[in-house]
């Protein structure tokens, strides 16, 4: 190798890595770090449209604490997150356990059909369920009427106390199958020999489930739980499409992100909307940290 080539080689060794990484870092700073800081700054202003703004310090956050609409949004979102996550997980796991039995054939087909809501996406699912929930003609009322005799004119989307159950039902349809894919994958990764050993030791099926399956799938279960929680707290598409801008009767479908959208893009107070965004981010972060702490995954991941 000539001296020149050696020098070039050395130069390349030194700078090539940074050349590879730079575009990524630039994008990340531009669309990740800058907007985050900017939105924190915005949260300290009262704005009316993009042009006029007034510095108010922490006033926006203080106002949030006493804003009844925000409280309602937080309450609705929390109820939604709680029920959708804690109904989703056992159902997904149950379904995965069924599919994981050796005698079940055609797993790929099942997996694909359970994944299909994800291809359609939230907006189209929302449109679809708006039809399913229609009184008289809707699929759900027809089925419930036939099976349980429930009134055909049950108004899922216009009766305040039924709005949340309707949204939770929709999200169950969307996510139970999707999360099942994670659980199925986790179940298939559990070492067969552990079951054999447990069987030799005389463990019942339930004991095996408790002491082999559960510990084996725990990391994935925690992962699914944390992600579902984060996702649930961002509920927006479903109520936006199914209930419209007004968030349903008596604001029964008002969620935190809906409230952010209404404040920022309907009333034009970008500052207040930013404060809502940051409160949501902090809340979600706190909940995920608690979940990870509580389930002890933190140490294991390291």
């Amino acid at each position: 190798m000539t001296m020149q080539r050696m020098a070039l080689f050395r130069l390349q060794r030194k700078y090539a890595p940074y050349l590879f990484v730079t575009p990524f870092i630039v994008l990340f700073l531009l669309f990740g770090v800058y907007p985050l800081i900017k939105s924190l700054v915005l949260a300290t202003y009262i704005t009316s449209g993009p042009k006029s703004h007034l510095f108010v310090g922490l006033e926006n956050f203080r106002f949030l604490l006493s804003d009844p609409d925000f409280h309602k949004a937080v309450r609705n979102t929390t109820v939604f997150a709680f029920f959708s996550v804690f109904l989703q997980l056992p159902l997904s796991l149950g379904l995965a356990l069924l599919l994981n039995r050796e005698l079940v054939k055609g797993r790929d087909f099942f997996r694909f059909s359970f994944f299909s809501p994800h291809l359609v996406g939230q907006v189209f699912v929302a449109v679809l369920f708006s039809v399913i929930f229609i009184p008289q003609f809707g699929l759900l009322n027809r089925v419930l009427h036939a099976v349980t005799g429930l009134a055909l004119d049950t108004k899922w989307l216009t009766n305040p106390s039924l709005v949340m159950p309707a949204l939770i039902l929709t999200s169950l349809w969307m996510y139970v199958g999707f999360n099942m894919i994670y659980f199925l994958a986790a179940l298939q990764a559990v070492d067969r020999e552990l079951y054999d050993a447990a069987q030799v030791d005389g463990a019942s099926a339930f004991q095996q489930f408790l002491h082999v399956t559960i510990p084996g799938i725990r990391p994935v279960a925690v992962f699914v739980m944390v992600l579902s929680t984060i996702g649930s707290f961002q509920l927006f598409e479903l109520p936006y499409v199914m209930l419209g801008n007004s968030s349903g009767p008596e604001g029964a479908g008002l969620t935190v992100v809906m409230y952010l959208y209404n404040n920022g893009f309907v009333s034009g107070d970008l500052g207040y909307a930013s404060a809502i965004g940051w409160s949501l981010a902090l809340g979600v972060l706190l909940i995920s940290l608690v979940q990870m702490r509580f389930t002890g995954t933190w140490k294991r991941e390291e």
């Binding site: 669309f31 990740g32 900017k38 965004g277 981010a281």
Partner: peptide, 22 residues
């Protein structure tokens, strides 16, 4: 750090990005 920003709801940045894009 990059991964942990994925935990944040993307709507936090919707307003600054809206302003930036405008």
């Amino acid at each position: 750090f990059i991964l942990s920003t994925r935990m944040l709801p993307p709507v936090v940045v919707v307003i600054p990005i809206y302003l930036m894009y405008t």
